[in-house]
Each structure stands twice: as C-alpha cells, then as structure tokens.
Design a protein around this nucleic acid. Structure first.
Lengths: 191, 191
DNA sequence: TTGGAAAACGGAACCATGTTCCGTATGTTT
DNA sequence: AAACATACGGAACATGGTTCCGTTTTCCAA
C-alpha cells in the first residue's frame, strides 16, 4: 500500500490549480475595474481561459466573490474582539467595527448590492458573510447593551443588513454612506 | 385658417390614448405580480400590445414607473406640510412623514432598488422622486433643526437616499426596514 | 518511456431580456 | 373617398448568463 488507506485520490491536476489562481487574480482585477458584476466572459478573457472553466471552478458568481474577498472578511471578523478589548467602551468598539465593515464594502463596487440580492445564486455570498460577521457583530452589540450603552435586543442580522444597504451606491457623489451609518450608530444609543 | 394660429396640432389618435392607459394598467398589475422589473414582454402581453408600443409611450422603464406611481408620490409630497402643521413637534412630523415614505417604498417590490440604480435609464425616476420629495423632506428637517430637536445641516438628499436604501429587501423575513429607519430618525435627535 | 484512463479545458450554442427598426394597419382630415 | 400622418406589431439584433460536449492535458502505472 501507499500508506494512505481509503483514498489516495489522485492529486489535483496542475493546470486546474493554475487556472484557479489565474481566475482569482483576473476576477479581482475585473472587480476593481468594473465592479463585482463584471461580465463572465471578461473575467475568463483576463484569465486566459474559457467560460466553462469559470463555472467549473466557481459554480456561481457568489462563490467567486467569496473566494476573492475571503481574506478581507476574515480580517474584519478578527478585528471585532480586538476592538472590543482595546476600545474605551463597547459602544466605541461597535462603532469602530462597523466603520471597518463599511470601509470594506464601499471600496468594492457593487458588492453591497450583490450582498442583498435575493437571487438564489447569491445565497452562498449571503451565507458566508452573515455566518462570519453576524456573530462578531452580535458579540459587540451584546457587550454594549450589557454595559447599558445601547438599546437592548438589537438584532445583529438586521443591523448588518441595514448597514450593508446603506453602503449601496456609496460612490454616488450626492450621497454619504458613512454619515448615514453614523446616524444609525447614534440611534442605537440609549439617551 | 382653422382658427388656432400657430398650432392646431391634430389631436392625439384614439388608439394611442387607449394603449397608453392599457399599458399603465398592465404595468401596475405586472409590478404588483413581479416587481418593477417585470419583463417588458410581459407587460406588453398583459396590455395586448407589441413591445414597440411600450417604448413609443414610455422610452425608458423609469418613465413607466413614474407614470404608474405618480399619484402616490404626489400624495406623499402633499402630506409633508399637513403633518408639519398637525404634529406635536417638527421631529414627530418628520418621523411620520418618513414612515409614510417607507410604507410606500416597501410595498413596491424592487422600487427601492430601482431608485438607486445608477443606470442611465433610471435617471428620470431618480430625478422625479428627488425633485418632488427632497424639498418636502428639507422643509421638515429645517423645521426640526430650527426647533433645536435634531442635528443641524442634515442634507435632505442624503437622508432620502439612505432611507431609500434601507428599504431595499424590506420583504426579506430576516430584515426590518422600519426598525432601521427608526434608528436613523433617533440618531438625528440631539441629545 | 509510454499507453491510456481520468480530469479539465474551450468555446460554440442556447436562453432570457432589453432595444431598435420598418413594413403594415389604423385613424384623421379634407 | 382619397391621401396623409400616426401608431402599431413583432421580427431582428445586442448583451450577458449558462450548459454541453468534442478535444486536450495531465497523471499514473506498467
């Protein structure tokens, strides 16, 4: 035997792995250039592969988006506990963390829109972001409400949805997503 | 001559007017059934006309949407001064008026999304809503800030944009647009 | 080293939607 | 009733997502 019992499942082909990273880079570039709705054919062309290859690696656009932004989402999630430990008050930590999330969203054209699309294809995106970030947000909310700084029982999922929505069209010159998010954060405070 | 000098511009054809109202009714029905993004062909079929006829009467989808919802927008605009006169405080009037606007938006699937699309075709929609409602909102904001109830210098356009955004996906069971809008309104208050 | 099975590829073909265009039909005027 | 303007319908085109299958590449094992 070769050592591994029930598997030895022939290692992934080299071209496959090559294409996957090429696609990730191409997608990242296309997203910057044309937003997360960049046409599939464009991304394929940038990566020098056929469209079929995209679908084989990333069945839905959401899978591709998640793959491209995974590190940044992880970083955001990780920042929650750190901010809570380092900030003067839980409410301050919550505010900082939300602004971090907003900064992430507003720099990705179309991501906020995609986040809230109810298209089945975006289910994965939805699920990933929410699974990863809602618990962090809930922890911050809980700390702040325990400290008596904010209204009790605020639902983290609703808050994240709302903040995401406020980031839609953030690059529109007549709009100011950060200001609106600031109002929401202020509105959470007990008076 | 026929009497009228520089015009006598031959009255509109009967079939044209018939089709316009048929189209408005069909669009209203389609919007209720499938949201404001109902396929053009569906609307045409409901109205019993060809697609060309839609484009002749309503060059962009925004024109159609505006035509369908004009009365309701007008009603909302008209309610502003009334609320201001009847409410206990300007802030209360502002809150009521915004909730009125929210109620309007959340019952029109996809309208909030369309409102903030930067697609050129939605320019008309944007312009109409904003021209009509922003001044009303500005008046309410002004009254409230003059009364010292809310932060000064809040921009009505930004607020309307934000509220519109918060209404996106309002029918999603895990979300609560009214709650989020309530937080914004609370956040406007001086403490 | 090489034969061939498995894996992955490319891109043509297909579908859904929005949009345009023009030959035809309808209404209006004289 | 004839002649003209107006409006109509829907085929044809454009765009973008998605699927499918014949071909190519890689890997394993003899």
């Amino acid at each position: 035997m070769t050592g591994t019992e029930a598997g030895a499942p022939r290692k992934r082909r080299a071209d496959s792995r090559r294409n996957e990273t090429a696609l990730l880079e191409a997608a990242a570039a296309a997203f910057v250039a044309s937003g997360v709705n960049a046409p599939v054919r464009d991304i394929a062309a940038r990566a020098g592969v056929g469209v079929g290859t995209i679908y084989r690696h990333f069945p839905t656009r959401a899978d591709l988006i998640v793959a491209v932004y995974r590190h940044q989402v992880e970083a955001c999630a990780a920042a929650g506990p750190v901010l809570l430990a380092e900030s003067a008050t839980p409410h301050a930590a919550l505010a900082s963390w939300i602004h971090l999330f907003v900064d992430f969203l507003v720099t990705k054209h179309g991501l906020a829109e995609a986040m809230r699309s109810d298209d089945a294809a975006f289910q994965t995106l939805h699920a990933y972001f929410l699974d990863r970030l809602v618990p962090v947000c809930a922890e911050l909310l809980d700390a702040a409400s325990t400290a008596g700084e904010i209204i009790p029982d605020m639902d983290a999922l609703v808050l994240m949805h709302g903040v995401g929505n406020l980031c839609i069209g953030a690059d529109n010159p007549g709009y100011d997503a950060r200001l609106m998010v600031g109002l929401v954060i202020a509105g959470l405070r007990l008076r």
